[in-house]
């Protein structure tokens, strides 16, 4: 333990975690991960990729078949949730329906034997932080979804844990509220300096909030990196496809290249590229007007190769489906995908 504690003391360290349910399908096939203190870390992946199971292993709600979980250098693999200095914000919020908001938030302090006066004060402060101090006497059933979500956050924050786990906490909210809460979560994370481990399947959410992201697929981690790294230098086709939209062209020698649609522009049929440009002549397959930009798919009939371009709507007015065009991009934006 001493050794572990001196080697950096990561907020979370996972090594060789495997897990399968009902002695059948493996959910995790070997997860290795290190999360730094104070980081906003996101586990991103489609449903069934193992991200929620990994979160539950960190929280202590599941036991791994093999592998180790450390929190701040301490091995907690076999410890129950109530012996870990971690608080969770559950997907369904898990507020106690028979308690007022204040009692919900103060529950953890009551269990730890914090005095009544201090309990009330700190609960009130935490509710204040999420702008719900005025309704602290209400029951959870009297709140809207967004308010419940805030109570769950206050309840996770109030015990000042080293680590907060968030299991798709914004999943049930509508788009506008989601955006607001994303900003608010990020603000609170920065303000408190608590390590956040956040699970989501929404890549846009992951990109906008996270310091680093781990992309999960079928029980393994495909790549760990900053949002920029994942977007600009994806380690695999899966990551490239899952994060942002992209075109993948099977280049020569079996090496595929990745093109982001915003790097592609449209030129009329017969356009001659400059030496540092590549082109794909073809016909417009599909046009989708998205407001500020228009998405346009160009297909080369002979090879079937396809490129998606995102062009400013103002310049896309003349485009029509079936039109012969040339998709153009600078050679240096094409990213060769690792095999």
């Amino acid at each position: 333990m001493q050794d572990n504690a001196t080697t950096g003391a990561m907020a979370v360290g996972l090594s060789g975690l495997t897990k399968s349910y009902d002695r059948g399908r493996p959910v995790l096939k070997g997860i290795d991960l290190e999360i730094c203190p104070g980081e906003f870390f996101t586990m991103l992946g489609p449903s069934g990729s193992g991200k929620t199971t990994t979160l539950r292993l960190i929280g202590g709600f599941e036991l791994p078949d093999a592998g180790q979980v450390t929190l701040l250098g301490r091995d907690v693999t076999r410890l129950p949730p109530y012996q870990r200095d971690v608080n969770t914000m559950f997907q369904d919020y898990a507020l106690f329906p028979h308690m007022s908001l204040r009692d919900n938030v103060a529950y953890g302090m009551k269990i730890r034997g914090v005095g009544a006066a201090e309990r009330t004060e700190r609960a009130q402060q935490a509710l204040d932080m999420v702008h719900l101090d005025a309704v602290s006497d209400r029951r959870p059933s009297q709140l809207s979804g967004g308010q419940r979500q805030r109570v769950a956050l206050a309840r996770a924050l109030v015990n000042k844990p080293k680590l907060i786990l968030l299991d798709e906490p914004l999943g049930a909210l509508d788009l506008k509220l989601r955006r607001e809460m994303q900003v608010e979560l990020k603000r609170i994370q920065k303000q408190t300096g608590i390590t956040f481990v956040y699970v989501t399947h929404d890549q846009e959410e992951a990109l906008s909030m996270s310091d680093r992201i781990a992309v999960f697929s079928e029980g393994v981690i495909e790549q760990v990196g900053t949002p920029q790294e994942l977007y600009e230098r994806p380690a695999s086709r899966f990551v490239a496809r899952f994060i942002g939209s992209s075109s993948i062209l099977g280049g020569e020698h079996g090496c595929a290249i990745l093109l982001r649609p915003e790097d592609v522009r449209m030129e009329p049929h017969g356009y001659t590229p400059t030496p540092d440009e590549d082109i794909l002549p073809g016909v417009v397959e599909e046009i989708a007007y998205l407001g500020p930009v228009t998405r346009c798919q160009v297909q080369r009939m002979e090879t079937g190769a396809c490129v998606t371009a995102m062009v400013p709507s103002r310049t896309a007015r003349t485009l029509q489906e079936g039109m012969a065009v040339v998709a153009v991009w600078a050679k240096d934006v094409a990213y060769p995908l690792p095999r």
Binding site: G59, G60, F61, P80, P81, Y82, V86, N87, T88, F90, Q91, D92, A94, L95, F96, P97, H98, Y107, G108, I111, R112, R155, N159
Partner: peptide, 25 residues
Amino acid sequence: PSLMEAAQDMGATPLRGFVTITLPL
């Protein structure tokens, strides 16, 4: 089931969680 998990998450032993959360409900 997340209610019991939440209780344990905040430091309650399973018995304490049962008495303070499950039983009243």
